[in-house]
Design a protein around this nucleic acid. Sequence first.
DNA 1: CGTAGCAGGTTTTTT
DNA 2: ACCTGCTACG
Length: 721
Amino acid sequence: MDLSLMNRAQYEAITTTEGPVLVMAGAGSGKTRVLTHRIAYLIEEKDVPSYNILAITFTNKAAKEMKERVDKLIDDDTSKMWISTFHAMCVRILRRDIDKLGYDRSFSILDTTDQLNVVKDVLKSMNIDQKQYPPRQFLNAISNFKNALITEKEAKENAYDFREKLNADIYTSYQEILYRNSALDFDDLIMLTIQLFQKDEAILNYYQTKFQYIHVDEYQDTNHAQYQLVYMLSQKYENICVVGDSDQSIYKFRGADIMNILNFEKDYDNVKTILLEENYRSHQRILDAANNVIENNTSRVPKNLVTSRGKGEKITSIVSQNEREEGQRVVKQIQKLKNEGYRFNDMAVLYRANSQSRAIEDALVKSSLPYNMVGGMKFYQRKEIKDLMSYMKVVLNIHDDIAMERIINTPKRGIGPKTIDTLKQHANALNSSIYDAIKDADFIGLSKKNAENLAQLLSVLENLKEKSKFMSITDLVDEILHDTGYLNMLIRENTLESNSRIENLEEFKTVTKEFDETHTIGDELLFDFLSDMALVSDQDSVDDTDAVTLMTIHASKGLEFKVIFIVGLEEGLFPSYRSMDTEEELEEERRLMYVAITRAMERLIISRATSRTIFGRTNNAMESQFWSEIPADLVEGESLISVYDGRSSNSKKRPRSKSQVFTDNSGVTFNVGDKVTHKTFGDGMITAINGSGDSEELDIVFSKVGPKRLLAKFAPIEKKG
DNA sequence: CGTAGCAGGTTTTTT
DNA sequence: ACCTGCTACG
């Protein structure tokens, strides 16, 4: 195995295979390369069976990539090696033994929407006003409990005030419902695995013995439960290698504990710590920007990235009047870079919140540029996909009431809320499921018509269950859509919307086909498919068409692009106003900025608008503090060619008024004393305001040309800082 | 029971 | 501006 191209630190990290190793890997320092070579080194040079190796990543995408890269490095069979996400690993462990905790081995996995519905049900049964107590908050509380490995009982014991008691009560009821349905949420996957290990030492011992060499990627993003899980697994051999970068910790909001990486040296004995500081990704100017920004964080271990790649181009800055113009100017810049020889594939537009994507998308569509959006309105969250998957869930586990409730009246079977309520109450009383309640239909006073409809549904479902054992997922999808009348419902509707739903269901079959190609028909098939689906995110869908990538900064972690656009660099948006209360939260935002900058290899474009519409309200937007943390001598402002040059293909559709050709300040509030910049007059200050609305006039004294009176709405001026 | 039309909240990030 | 959930009517 050839390690001659590694630097000294990388070589150390790869060959120090015994004992705990902490690799502090700066952005772009080749950490994936180190991990893959280390695994290959274990197998090829140390003759470790691949069966004894575990590598945990944070996303499916990272797991897949790691698997592929290891496969390329060695000839051995790697199929026995576990390279997976925390959640996928836990599903695999629980699938074997979760019955020891009283759950069905065909458990289902809830997504956030399902979870929210359960909480809402609980609130309803407790007569709690959902306006006063938003269900989301309870969901967060439950997630926090689970991430901290606090059981319902412990939560109750430690509840002192009313709210804590309420949280604990709702947690308890929520967990009862999940248990009864053999349903697990994401956090349960981790917590129950730990409970399983605690309950049954033989099982823990089995995995401790199996996983002699453990690797954890992105260790700075682990929460307490994940930390505990890794700790338990590593106790027998203590060959554990964690890789991470505390400067890239951006998941505190969902329980990630940066102390896990900072305390690693205390938590394990004889830790060998290796620092990877040489950056192989970015040009020096980009790194300078990143270093200067992150230096403003006080609670961090000082670290400076250096690169041997060239100085590179200056960072380009774009300042626009509003988000629409921002979109157009980003597109202009994309076209320019395309002409310079970059491919669309080389470029990504990053933003803080998904809602920002729309303006960028609009501009891309208008210019007919190809783009790929990750996240946002997710494919798997679309109604028709969720309905279909709910049918599949019920076929797998007929007692899954959460899925059952979703499909019991879709397509319409005349089963309204009242009937469902009756069924649920009956199920509750008997501590059983809706399915069992339907079987008792004659007892519980359902109308004859209802009972008939329900019996009909059950026979369809039971029939599908039998069929499911002998067919591929794709065939099962066809059967479900046909037998349940779902497809017919959409065909009969025959609206634009229903047709697009049919298309989406067709699209879904490309996913099932891909799955079918790699799996054999049998009892496990449906379970495997559904748990796969629950754990994949849309980011995992790889698209190799040449297109610009649009995504949130969070989604971009671990990726790199030659050209990176960071848009919406405005105070309140990025950093988010919700994160500006405490220094701690602000520092996490700054790490997010650091992650964004360090995705760029060659070119970085930063962009902001001076006014932005959120919730249909237009507000002034000040320059982000992160923008000003980038040294000015690294930055070059884009030359201000008007982008409203009328050549845009859609301009016919809605002829622009004069105000839009130049400037539209409507929505911007000016005050006496505001400092402004005029396109031609330069800097000045507002000394008086006359009139209001569209006829509002501003008296401005310019330092170069003296006093002027301008119409507020159309004046090409911008407020400063 | 089903639907249309309105009111109110919503936007941080995700396995 | 958009989505969800509620209400009033058919």
